[in-house]
Design a protein around this nucleic acid. Structure first.
Lengths: 208, 208
DNA sequence: ACCTGAACACCGTTCAAGT
DNA sequence: ACCTGAACACCGTTCAAGT
């Protein structure tokens, strides 16, 4: 099963991969249906056999960018797990040019999967918080990560055009700011709900 | 001083006010240069005498939306002040349809003023944190507020099209989620830096 | 100071028709 | 199953010229 069915034409996956390449190489504003079509040596209208519209292509890109799993083994400590998950998400977004913007705009339209939110949520859930807290905290953290990386990538693009000083400080400042924000949220969770977990080591407390 | 100089034509301010009205009435996707021009009974090219391009108009809108001051007198307690400032920003964004999106996209392009960030920062600064902490926390909070309200407005728009159940729960859930996120960040600040408060500034601030 | 007229170089999307 | 050809209904922006 999962039949190849490859006659001559392109598959849906070909479209997505070409789109990802244009995105990474030239950025989101250059990712047009016409340009994507010509990269596949096809008429623009041909794309509409594979996808109903441009936004659905962007939603697919968003899912692929975010779904790139990376992290090593999971830390038993929930707060470390949250940090690791947040960093993994940041890394995934940084993998493609304008990655955060793509995910952000897809989210703003209510499209795309919830995998990013869910990954953060399940890490937080290890801390034994109630479902509502887990969901809200995951949403807050997701907003922060997307906003932060979006600005990070914006600055990267800005710097790449006539940067005077692209020396040491910038990336460190970015990563430091990221860590700061994540830690702030983790601290907030710890201080307000720490009393819900037992003082032992790594015990199977969970929400769902 | 501040000469009227009103001959016959429109002022820069006329353009902005017309744009704000289109934004609020029909939403961001309908706010095109051509539509804006026709609302002013003018050719599209006339807009380029007032502004260099569309993005600069959006940046101006962003500033106006965010600059709407509202809050009553300032609470002496820094954490209450932060909550009030965050709520005021949310209210300002909710004043215009797609308000959060406009500000978010302007911020993403590195345009617009920093007044939103600065207001949050000065509220946090009352807590006596070091400059770096103030700046990072303000950025984190700003990202959260923009992300949250953006989703809120997206849902409002979605619900307005064929909503089955627009009854009680929704707005309460939204406002609750907002409060939760702000409180989470405030708690994070309190738990990690409470010991840093300055002796002579105001009064001893206390948590919870 | 403020705008017109006309054009340029694009967009996303639809749809009948082809193979 | 996958694509072409041609069109539709738009965009933002430029620029000489007008008053």
């Amino acid at each position: 099963m999962t039949p190849p069915a490859r006659g001559r034409g392109h598959s849906r996956d070909d479209v997505v991969r070409a789109a990802l390449q244009i995105l990474d190489e030239y950025g989101l504003p250059e990712l047009t249906m016409r340009r994507l079509a010509s990269a596949l040596q096809v008429q623009p209208s041909a794309l509409y056999w594979h996808f109903p519209n441009k936004q659905s292509i962007l939603a697919e890109l968003s899912d692929r960018i975010v779904s790139r799993d990376s992290h090593g083994q999971a830390d038993p400590e929930w707060s470390m797990r949250v940090r690791a998950e947040a960093s993994a998400l940041r890394d995934a977004l940084l993998t493609y040019r304008d990655g955060a913007e793509v995910v952000l705009s897809t989210l703003a339209l209510g499209l795309g999967s919830t995998v990013a939110h869910d990954r953060l949520a399940s890490a937080i859930a290890v801390g034994g918080f109630d479902d509502n807290t887990v969901d809200q905290a995951a949403t807050t953290l997701l907003h922060f990560v997307l906003g932060h990386v979006s600005r990070e990538q914006q600055r990267m693009q800005f710097d790449s055009l006539g940067a005077v000083d692209s020396s040491s400080g910038e990336q460190q400042t970015s990563a430091t700011g990221f860590t700061f924000g994540v830690d702030l949220l983790v601290s907030g969770l710890q201080s307000r709900y720490q009393h819900r977990s037992e003082p032992g080591v790594s015990e199977p407390e969970q929400a769902i």
